[in-house]
Simulated scan of single mutants.
Amino acid sequence: MNKDQNNFTSEKRKNYSDLLELGIVAAFIFLIICIYVPRAIWDEEESLQGESHFFMENMYDVQNFYKSVMGEYSPDGLWAVQVVNSVRDSLSGDSTYLGNQSITLNNKTFSVNVPKGYDIEFDTTFGFPMMRRDTISDTIATIVMYSEDLSRNDTSYVQKKLLNKFTSDTNFVELVEEVPSERVEVINYYDTYMPDSSMYFCPVSQKPYLISLEDEGNSVRVGSPIEETIVRRRYVLFAFKADNHGFIDDGSKSWDR
Results as ranks from 00 to 15, higher is better:
S168H: 12
D169W: 13
R234N: 13
I136M: 05
G23Y: 04
G50T: 10
T142N: 15
G117I: 06
P208Y: 05
S212M: 11
E148F: 11
T9V: 14
Y60I: 02
V62Q: 02
K160S: 15
Q206W: 07
E72C: 05
F126I: 07
A27H: 04
E228H: 11
Q82A: 14
K160D: 10
N113A: 03
E185V: 14
M70W: 00
S95V: 15
E45G: 06
G127S: 07
P195T: 02
E174L: 10
F54A: 11
L150T: 02
N244E: 01
V158H: 03
N6A: 08
A239Q: 15
F55G: 03
T139D: 12
S197D: 09
E72S: 11
A27T: 11
Y193H: 13
D249K: 08
L48C: 05
I120E: 10
N106E: 05
G23E: 12
G71P: 07
E228K: 06
L98R: 03
H53V: 04
E11T: 14
N113T: 04
S212N: 10
D61K: 12
L213P: 04
S137G: 00
K241S: 13
G77M: 05
F28L: 12
V83W: 00
L31C: 13
T142H: 06
T125L: 08
K160Y: 15
Q159M: 13
N188F: 14
D134W: 02
L237G: 03
G223L: 02
D76C: 03
S224Q: 00
S137E: 14
R88H: 11
V176N: 05
N106K: 08
Y146N: 07
N164H: 02
N64M: 05
A239N: 13
S47V: 01
C202A: 09
D61L: 03
E182M: 14
D76T: 00
F238G: 00
E148S: 15
P38T: 00
F240G: 09
K12C: 10
Y60D: 08
S197L: 09
Y193P: 06
S111I: 13
R13M: 08
V158K: 07
T135N: 14
M131G: 15
Q206T: 12
N113F: 06
S219E: 13
E177R: 04
P129E: 06
T155H: 07
L210K: 11
N107R: 08
I248A: 06
P115E: 08
V186A: 12
A40G: 02
W42L: 15
Y209T: 01
G99L: 03
S254A: 08
N64Y: 05
K165S: 10
D169R: 04
D123T: 02
S137V: 05
T124L: 08
L150N: 03
F240V: 01
M70K: 15
P208K: 00
I187Q: 13
R257E: 14
P195D: 13
V144F: 05
Q101R: 11
